[in-house]
């Protein structure tokens, strides 16, 4: 393993449990200690303009999108080199992508491994609608948009760099099909059913030394009720203004059966059925 291979990418489509998994890992890396939901920030954040400006020495807000894109592989190398050896977790919502010149934005030489957390897109649609303050139908349409991108700077400064998402199916496929970075695919539903087992498999994949007691303590320190209580008491900096629900909203699987109309569920199945079946999201004739 190269010296620069220090980054563990924690990847997901938005609203798929990324924050929960990173909190569990950060707790585990501290022996199962309590975590502050507002303390995770840059420690495991998304690539952002401040990092590009400071690490590459440039005014990124004066650059055009294509100029920023061309620098992103370099930025990820700089992030890996910044604090020397030792695992760095990074949150990722991007699909796996390359610059127009063909350079991988997530360089294999900087990567220790990648974990892709996937969630039933029918639950994602509900969560995304609350997170963005949009209708479920709009969320479903966004999840089918092959050009979907997060944090594009069109008329205002954005904290994060633009992140190409694509549609939900191509997002997960892009990571499953890349061969550059060792990938562990983990279902949110499986993590929810047995968080200790799920956390230990992620820790094993990223080479995080731990024992069973620490894994259990990390799971206990990041239980949904505790995270929600922290948000209620202190707010949460990752909650979008305009959201119609707390960031830690429900923390469960299968809510779509209650909250989606049969037409909405059928629409998601039509858009993503093939990938859903491949991932074991049962898709019978009646959409369940």
């Amino acid at each position: 393993m190269a010296d620069a291979a220090t980054i563990g990418w924690i990847i997901s489509y938005p609203k798929s449990g990324n924050t929960w998994l990173r909190l569990m890992l950060l707790s585990l890396m501290q022996g199962g200690a309590a975590v502050d939901i507002n303390g995770i920030g840059n420690e495991a954040g998304l690539a952002n303009h401040v990092e590009m400006d400071e690490l590459l020495v440039v005014e990124s807000s004066e650059l055009f999108p294509n100029e920023q894109v061309a620098a992103q592989p370099d930025l990820n190398m700089a992030i890996a080199a910044e604090t020397g050896p030792g695992l760095k977790l990074r949150k990722v919502h991007d699909r796996y992508w390359r610059t127009p010149e063909g350079v991988a934005v997530f360089p294999a030489s900087a990567s220790r491994g990648a974990v892709y957390l996937v969630r039933d897109p029918r639950d994602v649609a509900i969560s995304l609608s609350h997170h963005r303050g949009i209708t479920v139908d709009s969320a479903i349409a966004a999840m089918a948009d092959p050009t979907a991108t997060l944090s594009e700077s069109i008329d205002r400064q954005r904290r994060q760099l633009a992140q190409p998402l694509g549609d939900w199916s191509s997002h997960v496929r892009s990571w499953m099909e890349q061969l550059d970075i060792p990938l562990l695919l983990l279902r949110y539903e499986d993590l929810l059913a047995d968080p200790t087992q799920g956390l230990r498999s992620v820790a094993g994949h990223l080479g995080i030394a731990h024992d069973a007691g620490a894994a259990q303590a990390a799971v206990d320190a990041t239980r949904f009720e505790g995270l929600r209580a922290q948000e209620q008491a202190h707010g949460f900096g990752e909650r979008k203004p305009g959201s119609t629900a707390p960031f830690f909203r429900e923390g469960s699987a299968g809510g779509w059966r209650r909250d989606l109309t049969s037409e909405q569920a059928a629409r998601i199945l039509m858009d993503h059925g093939e990938t859903m079946r491949q991932l074991g999201y049962a898709c019978g004739a009646n959409g369940t």
């Binding site: 590459l56 020495v57 440039v58 650059l63 100029e67 061309a70 370099d74 700089a78």
Partner: peptide, 20 residues
């Protein structure tokens, strides 16, 4: 060196925005 800046052994600093 970064994508935009290089520092020489003599302390010279090259600032370049490619093609600009």
């Amino acid at each position: 060196s970064s994508h935009f800046v290089e520092i020489g052994a003599d302390g010279a600093v090259l600032v370049r925005v490619p093609d600009v």
